[in-house]
Design a protein around this nucleic acid. Structure first.
Lengths: 187, 187
DNA sequence: ATGAAAACATGCCATATATCAATATTAAAA
DNA sequence: TTTTAATATTGATATATGGCATGTTTTCAT
C-alpha cells in the first residue's frame, strides 16, 4: 500500500520507489495532543507539517487578545507559518491542535536540501506555492464581495467536514464575523 | 547603465551580462494607453507583465456589475492573473491601465522555457511566488482584524504614492468599502 | 476654451454586523 | 455520575458601513 504522502506528492509529480524512500527519509513523525502547539508567536518556524491525522488551526492574536483564524488544516494538508518559515523571521502566529494529531514534518534544512538535490521536489513545492497563492487570492475576493452569510455558505459547501470537527466560533473567526452573528445566519 | 529589470532580478539572484541578455531576449515591450486592457474576463492569460512605466489595476466584476479591485501595480511590479496564467484557464478578472503604460511582458511559453533552461530563473520565480503568497496572507489578516479606517491608514502608510495616482473610489474598492464611507474616513 | 463626464463630498436613512448580557446546551473533567 | 467548563443561542442595543440623492469640483475630450 502506497504511503499517503507519496500519493499526495504524486498528484503533482511521479516518483520512483527509491525517490520516495529518499524523500521520506527527510521527514519525521510526531504525535501531538489536542491543545498542543506546533508553533507559537515569537518562534521561528523550523518545520513544515503534513497532517496524517487530526485537525489544527493557525491564528493570530490582536491587541485585544481576540483570535483571528488564518486557516484550518486537516488530513493531507500542509501547514506552517509560511512567512516565518520562508523568510526565517519570528512568527506572529500560533498553530495548535484542535484534536489529537499525528503529523509528519520536514525541517527547514531538509526541505532546502531536498529542494536543491531533487529537482522534482523543487517543482513540487513551487507548484504548491502557486496553488497556495491562488487559494489566498480567492479568499480575498470572497472577503471583498461576499456577505457573511454568503461566505458561510461557500465554506460549508467547500469543506462540509470542517463543520463537524471545529467549533462554530472558530468558523466565525475564520470568516471574519462574530460568533453571535454566525449563530444567527442560519435563521 | 543596468536595465531596471536586471536590477530587479538581481535583488534576488545575481546574473552575468550574458545571462541577463538571454533572459531579456525572452521579453517583449509594449505600450498601452490609459483604459486599455492587458487581460479581459474569459481570456486565458498568456503573458506576465512587468511595468516599466505607468499604473494598472486588476479587478473583478460581480453579478451586479460592481468592481472589486484585487490589486494595483506600478513601476517595477509584476502583474497578470496568476490563476489563469498558472493553470491556463479562462480568467475571471480584468486588468487595465490607469495611466499610459510602458510594459515588458513574457509569454507563458517563454517563461516555461526560461524556467527549465535556467535554474536561476526557476529560483527567482519560486521566490517571487512565495513572497506573493506572504503578501496576500497579510492582506487577509488586515481584512479580518482591521476596520476600514485602519486599513486605509495602513495602505496610505505603505503606498503613499498610490494615493496621488489612483482615484479614491478605487482605493475604496481595494479596501472593500464603499466610496462614500472612504470619503468620510478622514473626518 | 468649453461642455461632458468623472470624481468627490455630504446629508439622510436603511441594513448588516458588533457588542453586551443572559441563558441554554453540550462536552469535558473529576 | 456529578460538576465544571466550553460552546451555542437569543434578545436588546449600539455602531459601522452601505446605498441613494444631490450639489460641487476636478478632469478629460474635443
Amino acid at each position: 500500500m502506497t504511503h499517503p504522502l507519496r500519493q499526495h506528492i504524486e498528484e503533482i509529480i511521479d516518483l520512483t520507489d527509491e525517490e520516495f524512500e529518499y524523500i521520506f527519509s527527510h521527514f519525521e513523525t510526531v504525535k501531538k495532543r489536542k491543545h498542543q502547539y506546533l508553533i507559537q508567536e515569537g518562534e521561528i518556524a523550523q518545520k513544515e507539517y503534513w497532517i496524517l491525522k487530526g485537525c489544527v488551526k493557525s491564528y493570530f492574536l490582536d491587541e485585544n487578545g481576540k483570535e483571528h483564524i488564518l486557516r484550518f488544516a486537516m488530513e493531507h494538508w500542509w501547514i506552517t507559518d509560511y512567512e516565518s518559515f520562508v523568510i526565517q523571521t519570528p512568527s506572529n502566529i500560533y498553530i495548535d491542535c484542535l484534536e489529537d494529531c499525528e503529523l509528519l514534518y520536514i525541517s527547514y534544512e531538509n526541505r532546502d536540501k531536498l529542494t536543491s538535490e531533487m529537482h522534482k521536489m523543487e517543482r513540487f513545492w513551487a507548484k504548491k506555492s502557486k496553488l497556495g497563492r491562488i487559494a489566498l487570492q480567492k479568499r480575498i475576493l470572497s472577503l471583498l464581495k461576499n456577505s457573511a452569510k454568503e461566505r458561510y455558505d461557500l465554506l460549508l459547501e467547500q469543506y462540509p467536514k470542517l463543520f463537524q470537527r471545529v467549533p462554530k466560533k472558530m468558523i466565525a473567526s475564520y470568516l471574519g464575523v462574530s460568533r453571535e452573528t454566525l449563530s444567527r445566519l442560519n435563521s
